[in-house]
Design a protein around this nucleic acid. Structure first.
Lengths: 243, 243
DNA sequence: CGCTCGGTTGAAGGAGGTCAACTCCGGTGG
DNA sequence: CCACCGGAGTTGACCTCCTTCAACCGAGCG
């Protein structure tokens, strides 16, 4: 269970930026706990103060907000390497919740130690800011989808984007499939659509063979056609930091 | 035109956190230019590299994304004190544009100097991160609105939120009005609605006297009723940093 | 005076929501 | 071994919220 940060398997991936040894050492000392939680558990409760920061070590999760009558909006999906808890911490009480889609493992950091990080390791402070800005960028994209794309375009966008993120994490297998742990309610809540209409839209895209789900994995046989449908063309990302 | 950062009028406002004198001194030296631009100008071009960071010194602006067929989504409105350019800088090319709603003045900072800021003034690094997280929180809220609220609820939410932000900046007059420089197309694009339906929804709310526009100023005669309609109840914010 | 821009209103159509029923499947317990 | 159950996916019917198209009005302006 215990893995030294220096040997963190994610650090081997090309999509992550490398850090100075003393930075990794600091991260190691900053890390308060390694916590495993089962699928479906709530990692951060809506409206509660937190006091901890997290890096998702393994598994999938999502951030969400609910209105008082139960309507739920998923803000973003979290994949391994994603850092969360910043919004909560810096605003003292969390405006949104985080829930595990699969069994997850978390690196837990004390929020009170964040100041040390900025003070003694400016490079890591810069990294944290990078991650916050990156996270916002993803939410921006989701907002564009939900605000201006049709149902089919939204689905296409989401599938491409999730496939891409998982691929960058090396989660892709030889036949191009990536894990896909969410069900249609999750997708509906992320897309700002009803469950029924999400289902019908996805059936259409599936019959067009724009995507396939087999054994809990997502396959995109015609990535270019999907991109065209979603009107989404993005340049390759530079390596990202990992805390 | 030239105002030393130490005498910045925004720093006098109670909603901004105070900084150490040497931090303010650094900000002053970090500041590259003070730039005035007319209403309607594009401050950041979509898809262009930037190389500069900005604090909105006066006036209003908005961040937006457009799809290739012209559909536009406004991601967020920018008010004095808002810091922007981070997303652009850290991703090398801006995924979104920024446009002025009124005549604006900008504090311009060289993006290359951001590293110095983190290195020599960790407190300011922390502040920048705080601002990034805060900005994301606003986008989160917009995403919830656009994804899950009805047209009337969205309008209510936006009006409350803008009124609140402007009030915190001391832009409110004795009769409770705040500046309101956007037209209905802006609102429609921010709400993810069509122009026509935005108009009809707003006419309804206006007849219910949930809001009023007079002389370019927004008045909310029944804030509580609006909050109930929007299902939006937020705790008061702690003071925010200013860079 | 005519132009444009922003706001307003009506009518018609469509995308998506809601309600309801049904299937399929894996578990679980008799 | 089979009955029962609950969760997830699927499908149809109907309705409504919102979009689209179009016309009109008024203010500001060259």
């Amino acid at each position: 269970m215990f893995v030294p940060c220096a040997d963190c398997p994610m650090r081997q991936l090309p999509s992550f930026r490398s850090n100075e040894p003393q930075e990794i050492e600091f991260i190691q000392s900053f890390k308060q706990a390694h916590r495993a939680l089962p699928s479906g558990s709530t990692l951060v409760h809506e409206g509660h103060a937190v006091g901890e920061l997290f890096t998702l070590f393994s598994g999938w999760a999502f951030r969400y907000c609910t209105l008082s009558d139960g309507r739920r909006q998923i803000l973003n999906f979290l994949l391994p390497g994603d850092f969360f808890g910043l919004q909560e911490r810096l605003n003292e009480q969390s405006p949104h919740g985080v829930e595990a889609l699969t069994d997850v493992e978390l690196c837990v950091f004390p929020a009170a130690g964040l100041w040390d990080l900025f003070k003694n390791h400016p490079g890591l402070g810069y990294d944290v800011t990078w991650l916050a800005a990156h996270e916002e960028r993803i939410v921006d994209m989701n907002l564009v989808s939900v605000g201006r794309r049709s149902a089919a375009e939204r689905v296409a966008m989401l599938l491409i984007h999730l496939h891409k993120r998982a691929t960058l994490l090396g989660l892709v297998d030889e036949s191009g499939g990536v894990p896909f742990p969410m069900n249609q309610s999750h997708l509906a809540d992320a897309l700002g659509l009803s469950l029924v209409h999400t289902n019908k839209t996805m059936s259409r895209l599936r019959q067009l063979e724009l995507y396939a789900l087999r054994g809990g994995r997502l396959y995109l046989p015609q990535p270019h056609a999907l991109q065209q449908l979603a009107d989404y063309y993005e340049s390759p990302l530079p390596p990202r930091p990992l805390v």
